[in-house]
Amino acid sequence: MPDYLIDPMPPQLSAALVAKLQRVETATVGHSRHWGFMDRGIQPLLRGKRIAGAAVTLAIPGQDSTLLHHALGLLRPGDILVVDRLGDDKHACWGGGVTIAAKAAGAIGGIVDGPCTDLAEIEDSDFPMWCRGMTPITTRLYNLGGTMNRPISCGNVPVSAGDVILADESGVLVLPVAEAEAIADAAIARQERGERNQERVKAGEKLGDISGATKMVLEAMKAGT
């Protein structure tokens, strides 16, 4: 018999936290935090998208998408489905039909540690997706088992159900819920400083003078003479 391990759906994020996270660029967090970022091979299929929400986790074996089809019926508005393909990089578990079902359930995005298919249908659905590229070879309903809302690995990062997912054009970040608000506040403050510095550069100041880089270079050169 196939082995299915399915845990309850995780708590969702508050609307206030989601709104705050949607202001944050993953690259801003990457200035100060170097862990929790998925492998850069997982890239967005649509440009200009940023999503923030709680992870619903799935692990399914290579040629099978039976549990994925079942999971689509459990998704709630605001969920982000994160799929561990257990090392498979040949078969697309996610295509046009899955996209339409996920969007109809209210999910706001999907992240697959493997390829997808049906790019035109994903684009037509305007559904944010991150994956490892495209393939025409798809999965079937082989009923091989899998896990849902258990810990997984996606993009070489551990993901637990309910973890915060922040994804945009630069990549995908996984955060513990307890740390998310403080990280968002720090990132927003950094972004606001960056915007002020950009205005100063446009007004004629040099970036190296503002950042302190020029002072560091000149002092190092002076010390070396």
Results as ranks from 00 to 15, higher is better:
Y4P: 00
L17F: 11
Q22T: 08
V24H: 00
A27S: 10
T28L: 02
H34E: 04
D39P: 00
G41C: 05
G41P: 02
Q43I: 09
L45N: 01
L45I: 14
L46R: 01
A52I: 04
A55E: 06
T57N: 09
A71Y: 00
L74N: 01
L75W: 05
P77Q: 12
I80V: 15
G97L: 15
T99V: 13
A105W: 05
A105R: 05
G106K: 06
G106L: 15
G106T: 09
G106Y: 13
A107Y: 06
D113G: 08
G114N: 08
C116T: 14
A120L: 13
I122D: 02
D126F: 05
M129W: 07
M129Q: 11
M129H: 05
W130Y: 10
T138K: 14
N143L: 13
L144T: 03
P151K: 02
C154P: 02
V159P: 02
S160D: 09
D163V: 10
D163S: 14
I165R: 04
G171F: 02
E181K: 07
D185H: 01
D185A: 15
D185C: 10
A186Y: 03
E192C: 04
G194T: 04
E195F: 07
K202I: 11
A203R: 09
E205K: 12
S211H: 06
G212L: 10
A213R: 04
V217W: 10
T225P: 03
